[in-house]
Design a protein around this nucleic acid. Structure first.
Lengths: 191, 191
DNA sequence: ACAGCGATGACAGTGACTGACATAAAGGTG
DNA sequence: CACCTTTATGTCAGTCACTGTCATCGCTGT
């Protein structure tokens, strides 16, 4: 096996993120991305459904980790405990090495409503998949959806703190902390 | 005051929903919507930022009801109770008279990923606004966001049941029921 | 009558995205 | 090695969402 040459897909992804970060999403044309990758516009659209999707490709493994985490949770766990265990186990995907990349990517998304919409759609799909996995385990609605959505929200909050400037704690720690707060929400009023 | 003539904005909204429902969103062009309303494409874009937005215009009052509901909740309520009270009070917006319309609108949205994205963005904005209102009341993060997101999720689930075919119960009832399930989620494991 | 103003139309332009077809490189089969 | 098939890419034309600019039309107050 010779040295790894990045394929067209990888070159397009890198060029796109780079241009979105430097010029801005709207100011970047697909033609520019394609040229930067040494390809044509038409080829771009053979790899990615649209201009937004190039930022979100390759999250299937990460989403699969969530689902597997649900399936692998202890059988006697409550729905929320199940989701917590899945969310925490999926955090392995985000080690310190990915922090800088995640930061750049999130900065671009935060700056672009169009990309935020797409991210919300991905998260909604993730929540739906988690709810379905809970269903497999016998959790009924609406508990399944409620737990799944809560878990995704915790993940998003933890992820936001994880990539915050100056943050140095691990994603797992942050998730655990926020899950604890979630549990405290339904606690009786302190009197 | 003479008889009410629907203005350009209303005609566009009605024509758009009608066409989206009958022909489908992607198959409908903005020119068609404008023609159906007796206007031109250019005028459409003077009233709505894009082809999706025409379906979502006029939700400001409804979102305002949520925020006011948060501000008007009893001072000794927990964050989750506060949000529940807000969500429940905002349900007044959806009486039985709006059910048929809401159904048609939701059917169109469910059939169109592009519209789902926009709806998710609106819901995310609503959750952010609710969290900010909680902040005003002294609720700290991440409890504020967690509560707000939970409340919005409950609303979405209840709304989904409210417009389900054959459904006849009131939105408020459905919301109460699902909030109860949410509270039960963090209950100790039944042993 | 006229000046100003708000709503609309007309028109040209950009850029995302698609379908159809051509081409070229890579690999297997006789 | 000639041949065929597959796969990746380029080319081109076309549609449609969306924008900037300028013209026009009708109303309103003076």
């Amino acid at each position: 096996m010779v040295r790894w040459e990045p394929g067209a897909r990888e070159r397009l992804q890198e060029a796109a993120l780079d241009l979105y970060a430097t010029k801005g999403f709207e100011e970047t044309t697909v033609v520019e991305i394609a040229q930067a990758a040494g390809l044509t516009e038409r080829t771009f659209f053979r790899y990615f459904a649209d201009k937004r999707e190039v930022i979100f490709a390759g999250q299937e493994l990460f989403q699969k980790a969530f689902i597997d985490g649900v399936a692998g949770a202890p059988k006697d766990a409550t729905p929320l405990e199940t989701v917590a265990s899945a969310v925490i186990s999926a955090a392995d995907f985000f080690g310190d090495d990915r922090r800088a990349y995640s930061r750049q990517r999130s900065t671009v998304i935060s700056a672009t409503p169009e990309l935020q919409e797409r991210e919300l759609l991905k998260m909604a799909a993730l929540a739906t998949a988690i709810a379905a996995a809970l269903d497999e385990r016998g959790v009924t609605e609406p508990a399944a959806t409620l737990s799944a959505e809560s878990g995704v929200t915790v993940f998003r909050l933890a992820f936001g703190q994880w990539i915050a400037p100056g943050s140095t704690r691990s994603l797992i720690d942050l998730e655990r902390e926020i899950f604890a707060e979630l549990g405290a929400l339904s606690a009786p009023t302190k009197s």
